[in-house]
Design a protein around this nucleic acid. Structure first.
Lengths: 253, 253
DNA sequence: CGATGGCTTGAGAGGCTTCAATGCCGGTGG
DNA sequence: CCACCGGCATTGAAGCCTCTCAAGCCATCG
């Protein structure tokens, strides 16, 4: 029941996001159709482009359709901290619907396909269907939960555990959307970019990655990460996936 | 127009939260009345009590009415990272409405008064008034924005700047609700607790606090923080209050 | 085939932690 | 009324984790 009365090309493009929403929220056919019918403007963007800048006033939210996107902020000195990584199906800045003035920036880490969805369309959908409003809200809450764990990593775990933790998190997130195959997932990110995420220097990231490789926990070849010893990696990372809220359960309050 | 037809004792207790919502959202009289009429169960809790624990399934959200509350997570080793501080008027876990299974814990830092509001009541209000749903969502988005900046602090700023940044942030947040008076605000927090927030050891927090004091930027006496040199503190912290979204503006998407 | 970007490795410096001890203060009980 | 106790702030010294600086290697690409 996906509103087949009109089948614009963009529909298949919204499907991964709907899938993500359905992971955590129960939506009826009408609500699902509304999501699929959201007008979207698709755009291809090369690697390393800041396509949303600090202090901008946004009129749309960005859906990652393909590629890898980083949300980041920086210090006056210019040190960059990536606060979130977004894979296909993620809305990189859904929170911009309620906070249109950005205090963050978005950057493509690899060349990516981005879908821009007007705030007005999202607000209309949320206003009409409370279940959608709640689903959007929940999506942002999960984002915040990841942010909180990221703070724990940066504040309390050493470089090696931090690095392992990132690999664990991305494995679980990719797996949740069916992108973890043959014990590996796409991880097309340079060590400099990893350093931005982990609050480390690229030099030290290199040493930590090698340490994990030497311990036969993972292998990073080219643009993929292969998990060799999942229990070992989880152990090294002190990882508990609960914060990702990936178990399907629809109980609200 | 505050629904004077019934004036239960708890109403004055919801006022600070409504004030906080109104800082960033436009709500009509009916919507405001709905917030003030939310049923709330008030409870007094001593200092250093974990009143929400990890992995719990919550049926209510916690409003801080008085005192100081910390949201935290910890590593397997037991190192604690406080990811958010909450002052009176804050909802410490509004996001629990959409994610009732906690991946965090709440702790009183001083003896506090907490108001428990049933999720069902909040969901009903949100379902009935889209503007309220959006206001709740926005409140969570601001919380996430603070979390993101916290990641920047932990990942990219040194101990001194981090310490100064915390003092700046709390000054602005207290000021926004009229609790910054005579160049000072309540900051009843031990250096051990500050260390939990800042991802440092208590010993080093002590040295950083002394350094800031020696530079005549602030004074921490007993349970209050006095700002001596605001521009200097902002400079030391590399602080930009934009992420707090405290300017009154009601444009949505 | 030189330039570029990413990965790798080494050596030294420094910021923060760890361990340890002291002083201060308020609360409590004899 | 005062001695004791526990929590908190403070200070010192040593050590380690991570950064900084620097250089070399390799693949890709124009």
């Amino acid at each position: 029941m996906k509103s087949e009365h009109q089948a614009p090309l963009h529909q298949h493009v919204m499907q991964p996001f709907l899938t993500r929403l359905l992971l955590r929220s129960s939506l009826n056919a009408e609500e699902q159709a509304t999501v699929l019918d959201l007008p979207i403007r698709v755009e291809r963007i090369p690697a390393s482009v800041d396509f949303v800048r600090l202090g901008e006033r946004l009129g749309h939210a960005c859906l990652v359709i393909d590629g890898l996107v980083g949300r980041f902020e920086q210090t006056r000195k210019g040190d960059r901290q990536t606060t979130a990584l977004h894979i296909p199906g993620d809305m990189a800045d859904l929170h911009s619907v309620v906070l249109p003035k950005t205090s963050w920036a978005l950057q493509t880490l690899t060349s990516s396909t981005i879908g821009k969805i007007a705030h007005t369309a999202l607000v209309q959908a949320a206003d009409r269907y409370p279940a959608l409003a709640q689903a959007f809200w929940r999506d942002c809450a999960v984002d915040a939960s990841i942010l909180a764990v990221s703070s724990v990593n940066l504040g309390r775990r050493d470089a090696r555990a931090r690095t392992a933790h990132l690999l664990c998190e991305m494995k679980c997130r990719e797996e949740a959307v069916g992108r973890f195959t043959e014990d590996s997932y796409g991880f097309p990110i340079t060590q400099v970019q990893m350093a931005d995420v982990l609050g480390l220097t690229a030099v030290h990231v290199n040493r930590m990655v090698r340490s994990l490789r030497a311990a036969s926990l993972i292998r990073l070849s080219g643009s993929r990460a292969s998990v060799i010893d999942w229990p070992g990696l989880v152990e090294a990372a002190d990882f508990d996936p609960a914060y990702l809220h990936l178990e399907r359960r629809f109980e609200a309050g």
